[in-house]
Simulated scan of single mutants.
Amino acid sequence: MRMSEFWRLMDDEFGASYSRMLASTHVLHALDDLTVEQALAAHRRPRDVWEALCDDMNVPPERRLGVDLPVRDNPKES
């Protein structure tokens, strides 16, 4: 997972403002009691950070992949 994907999932699930606040304050006990931001800064895999946060926040499995994005038309095929 790329960092851009991580932040898209955060914003999809928690909203842009709350996701930033959550990242700076929520302690992930499964990741050595680091906040989300600290875990990412310590080069923890974004997927591992996301999964730990989802577990803590009781995000159901069906929402852990984020909102489905619309399929974009390929202008070369038109």
Rank of each mutant, 00 (worst) to 15 (best):
E62K: 13
T35C: 09
D32M: 07
M21I: 11
R8A: 03
P75A: 06
A30T: 14
N58I: 07
T35Q: 05
S4E: 10
D11W: 03
D12Q: 02
R47H: 10
D73S: 14
R20E: 13
V67T: 12
D48G: 04
L34Y: 10
E62M: 10
R20M: 08
D56W: 00
P61G: 14
L34N: 15
L53Y: 04
L69C: 05
R47Y: 03
A30D: 15
F6T: 04
N58P: 00
L53G: 07
R44E: 13
M57A: 14
C54A: 14
L22D: 06
M57G: 02
D32C: 04
F14E: 02
C54F: 05
L9P: 01
A52Y: 10
P75L: 10
N58G: 11
L40W: 05
P61M: 13
G15I: 05
L28E: 07
W50D: 05
A42R: 15
C54M: 08
L31A: 05
L22V: 06
R72M: 13
S4F: 00
E51S: 11
A52H: 11
E13H: 00
D73E: 14
Y18H: 11
M57T: 09
Y18F: 13
V71R: 14
M10V: 03
A23D: 03
A30I: 04
E51A: 13
M21E: 09
P46V: 05
D73H: 11
M3L: 13
L22N: 02
D48Y: 02
M21G: 07
V36M: 06
Y18N: 09
E77H: 08
T25M: 06
D11G: 03
S4T: 08
H29E: 15
H29R: 15
L65W: 07
M3W: 00
H43M: 12
P46C: 02
V27K: 14
V67D: 05
V59E: 11
R2A: 01
L34S: 13
P46T: 02
A41H: 12
A16L: 06
V71P: 04
S17A: 14
R63Q: 15
P46K: 01
A39K: 09
P75Y: 06
Q38M: 11
W50F: 13
D12F: 00
D56N: 08
E51M: 12
D11V: 02
S4K: 05
M3R: 04
G66N: 11
M57K: 15
S4I: 00
E77M: 10
D48K: 09
E37C: 06
R2Q: 08
D55N: 13
S24P: 01
L65K: 12
L31Q: 05
V71G: 04
R63T: 03
L53S: 03
L34R: 15
V67Y: 01
G15V: 03
R63Y: 14
G66S: 10
R47W: 06
Y18P: 00
A41I: 09
V49I: 10
H29M: 12
R44D: 07
L65Y: 09
G66E: 09
G66K: 08
D68T: 10
R20P: 00
H26V: 12
H26G: 01
S24V: 00
A42Q: 15
Y18D: 12
P60G: 08
R2T: 13
F14M: 04
N74A: 10
M1P: 08
N58V: 06
